[in-house]
Nucleic acid binder design. Structure first.
Lengths: 356, 356
DNA sequence: CACCTTTGCGAAAAGGTTTTCGCATAGGAC
DNA sequence: GTCCTATGCGAAAACCTTTTCGCAAAGGTG
């Protein structure tokens, strides 16, 4: 158990096992079929390596093979102000697990909205010679990747809706919304309320709202709409949604269920309904979107899941695939993967009350 | 703008600028004082590098210098079940920002509770020859680092309370609890309720509770205690806390404020109080701990911040420091940094009501 | 004019691994 | 006993950068 404190090289192992460095390499990387090794020799080498605590030098290997066996990931940290965007934690979780399961590792670069920072991160990833890249669409949209990146590097985009020939993994927002409306219809709800920011604000605002309106129409229901202002922080969003709905309730009535563009709006709805003396779900059912905060609301919130874990896993899988296929970049045909959003039914939805 | 698609080496640049590779290196890394370069030559090299889109090979450099200019980070992903522990997102955010600001990068390994996984990650980090390591205490406690890691590698622990000679960055749980009790006393509260798991469950359970009890005593207040069961998921914790408090209220009364071991308990308290017909904060004040969910509760929850960002930043700083000082490991004297938890006052605390 | 100093740049080694190529030895066949 | 083959292992090149050392040329001084 002699452990040389610092750097033990392949040569040290070779000396101890009384073989050549090349032989040690062959024993330790049985992949290459260039030359067989006797069992005795193999044993000796392995023993020496163990005794010396040998660990191959990652950089030497990567330098030679040209492969880093690493995948670069750019992550959206949101603003430093907000408490760190708990949003992408599940996604990173999935990416990391998937990539490490493939024997690779993750080199990560957090992207603040600051663009020079993004550029730095990308340059870094490129110098690192990672085998592939996973990039959130908003970063890609904002930064001219091609200028800094080796164009031969496989790239997978998440949540990107512009024109591109790169493989993309997107959330299909509409599926879950349709599920939600259907779920409400089955519970006997006839008059629904949509709460969300103006559709112009962002593509997803329009998509989710359109899906809602279309589903309502298809099922022969009625709907009203409450258009929200949208402050930046989560806390302000809750407060704004609450205030809006409270105003709205004072003048309108008749809806028995609310579907929200996002969770913070739904949390605001919880508060507004309580203040208006209405119970969730006995008087009004509420459905949120994203499914980060929903489980800890009371009652536990029925919500449409953003499927962050699934998106992360699929994106990582795609990246691994591209990284390993040497015939890579064969993908003339673009691959767009749509991950369906999914309704998670909890306890904020129930049979429609008879309200007028 | 001729961009050779793939690998352009320092030699290519040298050829184009009609100088030697060594000269190119000297121009591009002005750090080394071994030999001055004429302005004309410098210009030519820079131009050639730009035209070719040269980017130095990270692995070649690291192999030579023996330094990766990278810091390894092990992160607690919690169980795959839970939706990805939004908990550590702010901490990673801070670590990443700090490390990248120092010109290094982050090699990350997510630690599921699975120990063989941790071992793999650690081995990986070691092969990678990172310059320092940031490891959560629970991982360190569970895994015999010394066996796999080069012992010369600087390591910084976060949230570790066992005996060790390694530098540690911990949260000082007590400070915020004292602030919280003081805050309540100033608002006129005299009878407080503590809600938390049994103190034996975990060190932090005892520490926070003890701080609470001592503060109550010092300020001449009274307190009761509600001991909670603690299921694994956040959703179940909310439900359990709610049920417990609802029972408790039926038999006891007289407290005007609740201090909770964690946020999920506080969210449960919100729900229980509402169901019991008590308003927050008019009838009862509530204080939570961690400050992840607190901002989106309604009313926005006064909570003790776990200071994840600060812990991350300080740990990263310490790691960078150890990585750069070549005299490193000089630290005979252990450095324990205590980050004070901090009360974030929002709207779930108010002047004490007159309840009996 | 000769010699010395300074300045600018090239040559080459080092760093640790992988892999190809070729050599040597052992075993079998005739 | 000789020749051939198969098998096991060593030598050395290649990967790309950094850095030391030394050389050469230019400029200044005696």
């Amino acid at each position: 158990m002699t452990r040389k404190s610092s750097k033990v090289t392949i040569e040290d192992v070779a000396r101890r096992a009384k073989v050549s460095p090349g032989t040690v390499s062959k024993v330790l990387n049985p992949s290459s079929e260039s030359g067989r090794i006797s069992e005795a020799c193999s044993q000796a080498v392995r023993k020496a390596a163990l005794q010396l605590g040998y660990q191959p030098n990652y950089h030497a290997r990567s330098l030679l093979t040209g492969k880093a066996r690493a995948i670069g990931v750019v992550l959206n940290q949101g603003d430093a102000e907000e408490n760190g965007a708990p949003f992408w934690a599940p996604m990173f979780n999935a990416i990391d697990t998937t990539i490490r399961a493939s024997g690779r590792h993750v080199v990560i670069v957090g992207a603040v909205d600051d663009l020079t920072d993004v550029a730095n991160g990308l340059r870094f990833l490129n110098e690192h010679r990672v085998d592939a890249l996973v990039i959130p669409g908003f970063v890609f949209a904002a930064h001219p990747i091609s200028a800094t990146m080796d164009s031969a590097l496989p790239i997978v985009l998440t949540e990107f809706h512009g024109p591109t020939s790169l493989p993309v993994v997107n959330l299909d927002d509409a599926v879950g919304v349709v599920e939600a409306v259907t779920h409400l219809a089955q519970l006997g709800h006839r008059r629904l309320l949509w709460m969300g920011p103006p559709p112009e604000l962002h593509r997803s605002c329009a998509v989710r709202r359109d899906a809602f309106l279309k589903a309502v129409q298809n099922l022969g229901l009625e709907s009203t709409e409450l258009c929200l202002v949208r402050p930046r922080t989560d806390q302000e969003q809750v407060a704004a949604a609450r205030a809006s709905l409270l105003n709205f309730i004072a003048e309108h009535s008749g809806f028995t269920a609310v579907v929200c563009y996002e969770e913070t709006a739904a949390l605001g709805a919880y508060a507004a309904l309580a203040n208006a003396g209405l119970r969730v779900p006995e008087d009004v059912s509420v459905i949120g979107f994203d499914d980060i905060y929903a489980p800890v609301a009371w009652p536990p919130m029925t919500a449409i899941s953003h499927q962050l874990q699934k998106i992360g896993r699929v994106a990582a899988l795609r990246a691994i695939e591209l990284a390993s296929s040497d015939t890579a970049r064969a993908g003339f045909q673009q691959q767009i993967e749509q991950i369906p959003s999914q309704l998670m039914i909890r306890q904020s939805t129930a049979t429609a009350a008879l309200r007028g």
